[in-house]
Write a protein that binds this DNA or RNA. Structure first.
Length: 209
DNA sequence: ATATGGATTGCCT
DNA sequence: GGCAATCCATATT
């Protein structure tokens, strides 16, 4: 009810800063009359034209236009003909950059999520970039959606300001071939929803609550 | 017009 | 661990 929507200024920064601070924040999605909420636990940063792994690497096209638009908007695309992937645009207008959502933990509405994307355990229903979009009813229709406006799809602050600190693990990004050595995947240590928790840990950060 | 390949997942051996 | 499913944007002819 008293969600505090993340302001556009939050996203008007470098993708890595946004990615790290998105950990622990909340994604809100209203669908079929139900309010779904989930905690962000795993993300990846993609830069603009300087990042060979990013869709924006070779300039603006119709597909990636959202990445060159204003910050705080959803970039949704289809991968492998099967799965939708969700990103949020960062950086000011005309400068590309985004954060890919890879895993979240269900807070409210896990039953509906499980109905949309059956999983072995509710804790895993939003584990994986293709899986979370399916469980949250996110498709191409939401490409370009403004995530800074309260409505059926937006991002909000952590509802419980937590004084504790959280450990953030930094690794290379998953599933890419170019620039595969760069440290741009971030996840919360100890979250059961994180995909592929094993792998090369490049560094660790401490995020204050 | 046609060809290529991908920021994945789940089921198979 | 291997691989098929399956669509679309983009590059090439």
């Amino acid at each position: 009810m008293a969600d505090r929507v993340l302001p556009r200024s939050f996203f008007n920064r470098a993708p890595d800063a946004v990615a790290i601070e998105l950990l622990g924040k909340v994604l809100v999605r209203r669908i079929a009359g139900q309010r779904l909420r989930a905690r962000i636990v795993e993300v990846e940063a993609y830069h603009g034209i300087d990042d060979p792994a990013a869709h924006s690497a070779s300039g603006r096209t119709r597909r990636n236009a959202v990445l060159f638009g204003p910050p705080g908007h959803a970039y949704v695309y289809l991968i492998y003909g099967t799965h939708w992937c969700l990103n949020v645009s960062t950086e000011p207008e005309d400068k590309a950059g985004c954060v890919l959502f890879r895993a979240l933990e269900p807070i409210d509405g896990a039953d509906l999520m499980m109905h949309l994307a059956p999983a072995k355990k509710p804790a895993l229903v939003l584990s994986g970039p293709g899986r979370l979009t399916r469980a949250l009813g996110i498709t191409r229709e939401l490409n370009g959606h403004d995530l800074c406006r309260k409505g059926d799809f937006y991002l909000a602050h952590d509802p419980e300001p937590d004084a504790r600190t959280a450990r953030v693990i930094v690794t290379p990004r998953i599933g890419i071939t170019k620039a595969a050595d760069r440290p741009r995947r971030y996840y919360l240590e100890n979250s059961p929803a994180v995909t592929r928790p094993r792998g090369p840990v490049l560094k660790q950060l401490t995020l204050r609550g």
